[in-house]
Design a protein around this nucleic acid. Structure first.
Lengths: 143, 143
DNA sequence: CTCCATACTCTCTTTTTGGTTAGTATAATT
DNA sequence: AATTATACTAACCAAAAAGAGAGTATGGAG
C-alpha cells in the first residue's frame, strides 16, 4: 500500500476544493454535524479502507481485509457499514454460496480522498519537525 | 466560533500545499508515523483548539476553555499538552499568582489549520448529501 | 479573615472501543 | 463424509478514553 496513492496523483483535482467559495455558516447544529463527520471520517481504518479501494477499485470483503494490516473482521465490517451509510462506498451482494460481496468507492468517497490529500501532505512534509519537537519536549520533561 | 475561520480566509495559502511535489515514501515505519500524526491531529478537541487559537491569537487556558463548548478541564489540558509536544502551540507560563499561562499557535500549527482546510470544505459542501445517504440507509434498515 | 480566580493534578467511575471467539448457511472440493 | 471458504452477526471481556469532582498554591479583593 502506497501512502501517496491519493495524495500525489490527485493534487490537481484536489485544487477543486480550494478555488470556490465555501458555504458560510455559523449555525451550531451544522457545525456539530461537520465536526461529527470529520471525526468519523478521520478515523484510522476509514482512511486505510479509502486508500485501498482507491488503489484497487472494486474489492471483495476479504481482499480489503488482507490488504489492511492488523484490521479485525469486526472493525472492517463496522468501518464499511459506516462508510456505506455515509455514502462513501457501495456494497453489492451476490446471492451465491459461499457469499460474495463487492465494495467500491462512490464519487463522494473519491472526493473525500482528494480532500484528505492536503492533510497527508502536511503530515509527510512536517513529520521530521514533529518528531524533533516531541523529542525536545520529552527531553525537557526528563529532567 | 465560526467554522469557516480557517477554511475560508486561508484558501489561497492552502494551495501552497498542493503545488509542490510531495515526498515519495512507502516505508512502513514512516507510513505508521504519518498515520499516527493524522490520528492525533484529526482529533475533535485538537481541531477546535486549533480553530480557537487561530481566531483569537494568544489565549489563556481558561479563555480557550470558555470558547470551546463542552470540553472538560482534563481534556483541555491533555489536548494542549499534546499540541505543545507536537510543536503546534507554544505555552508561556508567567510566574504569578493566581497562575497565568498563555497559549499561541506556532507556524506549524497555523500550517496544519490550512492543511485541514480542504477537509472542512469537503464536509461542509457534502453534509446534505451525507445526511440524505444516512437517512436512506436507516430507512432501508428499518424494514 | 474569608473568599475568589487561576491552572492545573489526582483519583474514581463510567463509557466507549476494540479484540477474540463462536456460530451460520451453502456449495465446491477432497 | 469431512473440510474449506466466504461474509458476516452476536456475545463476551479487557483496555483505553473520557467525565466528574476534589485538592492545591497564592495573592488580591472585600
Amino acid at each position: 500500500m502506497a501512502i501517496t496513492s491519493f495524495k500525489v496523483e490527485d493534487i490537481s483535482q484536489a485544487e477543486d476544493y480550494l478555488d470556490r467559495a465555501p458555504p458560510e455558516d455559523t449555525d451550531p447544529v451544522i457545525e456539530a454535524l461537520v465536526t461529527e463527520i470529520i471525526g468519523r471520517v478521520a478515523d484510522k481504518w476509514t482512511m486505510l479502507v479509502l486508500e485501498a479501494l482507491h488503489e484497487h477499485g472494486v474489492m471483495r470483503f476479504s481482499e480489503i481485509g488482507r490488504e489492511i494490516d492488523g484490521i479485525s473482521q469486526k472493525m472492517l465490517t463496522q468501518t464499511l457499514r459506516f462508510m456505506e451509510r455515509d455514502g462513501l462506498v457501495t456494497r453489492t451482494v451476490y446471492p451465491v454460496a459461499p457469499p460474495k460481496v463487492e465494495y467500491a468507492l462512490t464519487a463522494l468517497g473519491e472526493s473525500l480522498g482528494r480532500a484528505f490529500c492536503g492533510v497527508w501532505i502536511w503530515a509527510e512534509r512536517h513529520r521530521d519537525e514533529i518528531e524533533a519537537s516531541r523529542q525536545a519536549f520529552d527531553a525537557r520533561k526528563a529532567e
